Structures are given as structure tokens and as C-alpha cells.
Amino acid sequence: TEDARKEAKKIIDNGGSPDEAAKFIKKYGLSEDQARELVKRAL
């Protein structure tokens, strides 16, 4: 979702790792793979 993508970008912009961002956005109901893909797109 757009919200999850924004959250991921915010985490990374604040110095978080892509892994942290992926873990965080899994709470939106995404699978591990979906979360990682979304983080990649957010970069």
C-alpha cells in the first residue's frame, strides 16, 4: 500500500536499514517478500 511505502521511506530516510523497514511494514499485512519489494521501490 501507499502508506506502507511512505513508512518504509521514512524509516530509511531516518537512518534505518532496509531490513528494519521491511520488518516494520510487515505489520500492514504484507508477506516478507512483498515487504522487501516495497522497501526496494521506496529507495
Rank of each mutant, 00 (worst) to 15 (best):
A42C: 12
A42T: 11
P18A: 11
P18F: 14
R36F: 10
E7Y: 06
Q34C: 13
A4P: 09
K40R: 11
E37S: 04
F24P: 01
G29Y: 00
D3H: 13
K26E: 14
L30M: 07
G16C: 13
D3C: 15
D13W: 09
V39D: 02
Q34W: 05
G15R: 00
V39M: 04
E37L: 08
K27M: 08
L38F: 07
Q34V: 10
E20V: 06
K23H: 11
K10V: 06
R41H: 13
E7G: 04
S31A: 03
V39P: 02
T1A: 12
Y28Q: 00
A22W: 11
K9G: 05
E2V: 09
D19G: 07
D3Y: 12
R41D: 14
I12P: 03
R41L: 15
K9Q: 11
F24A: 15
L38E: 07
N14Q: 13
E7W: 12
G15Q: 02
E2R: 09
A42Q: 09
E32C: 00
A35R: 00
E32Q: 05
A8M: 07
D33I: 09
A22I: 15
A22P: 00
K27D: 05
G16A: 05
V39W: 02
D33F: 07
S17R: 05
E7V: 11
D3G: 08
L43K: 04
E37K: 04
E32L: 11
P18K: 05
E20R: 04
G15K: 04
Y28C: 13
E2A: 10
L30K: 00
I11H: 03
D3S: 11
L38I: 15
A22F: 13
K10C: 14
S31P: 03
A21W: 15
K6S: 09
L30H: 01
A22K: 08
L30G: 01
D3R: 14
R5Q: 13
I12F: 05
A22N: 05
L38C: 01
K6H: 10
E2K: 08
E7N: 05
G29Q: 02
E32S: 06
E20W: 09
F24M: 12
R5A: 14
F24V: 11
K40V: 10
I25T: 02
R36Y: 12
L43T: 07
A8R: 00
D19E: 14
K23P: 01
A35M: 07
N14H: 09
K23M: 13
L43P: 04
A35F: 10
G15Y: 03
Y28M: 09
N14D: 10
S17I: 07
G29A: 01
K40M: 14
G15E: 03
K9L: 14
G29N: 06
E7A: 14
I12T: 02
A42W: 14
D33H: 09
F24Y: 13
A42G: 06
K27L: 05
I25Q: 01
Y28S: 01
A35V: 12
A35T: 05
E7K: 06
A4F: 08
G15M: 02
D13E: 13
L30F: 12
K6R: 14
K27V: 07
A35I: 13
E2F: 11
E32W: 12
A4C: 15
A21I: 15
A22R: 07
E32V: 06
G29L: 02
D13R: 11
V39A: 04
R5F: 15
D33M: 08
K27G: 06
V39T: 01
A22L: 14
K27N: 06
D3Q: 14
A8L: 11
D13K: 11
I12S: 04
S17W: 06
G16I: 06
I25S: 02
L38V: 13
E7Q: 10
D13L: 13
I11N: 05
D33L: 09
A22C: 05
G15L: 04
R41T: 13
D3K: 12
A8H: 01
S31Y: 00
A42R: 01
G29D: 04
R41W: 15
S31C: 01
A42K: 02
I25M: 08
D13G: 07
S17L: 07
K6Q: 11
G16Y: 08
S31K: 00
K26S: 12
K40S: 10
S31G: 04
L38G: 00
K26T: 15
A22M: 15
A21V: 12
K6N: 10
R5G: 08
G16E: 04
D33R: 07
K10T: 09
D33W: 09
S17A: 05
R5L: 15
E32F: 08
S17C: 00
G15A: 02
